[in-house]
Amino acid sequence: MEFGIGAYAVLATTIFGIGALGFVVRRNFLVQLMSVELMLNAVNLLFIAFNRIYVEQHGGQSFAFVVIAVAAAEAALGLAIAIAYHRIHRSVETDLADRLRH
């Protein structure tokens, strides 16, 4: 069975939406990090799917590779911050970080 670009676009948008919803609704550092990763993967899917329209060059696929690489770096840094956060709060609930306010 063959799926059209439209189907991929809908799927990617759905995953992106789930990721965004997760980021906004959940208050756990790690879950929020995973939500962002989900959003990035949705973007990758979209890039690769769209590349099927423009088969003569590989802009979309290259973009996806770059996103994957940067996401890895981002995750590494994110986990380091998460560890520092846990050492201070003994928890990864991001709601605990509300000292900075007026």
Binding site: F23, V24, R27, Q32, T94, D95, A97, D98, L100
Partner: peptide, 13 residues
């Protein structure tokens, strides 16, 4: 609102 990641994210959305 508030002063948390959550509230700022809501503002962005």
């Amino acid at each position: 609102q508030g002063s948390t990641v959550h509230s700022h994210a809501l503002g962005m959305v």
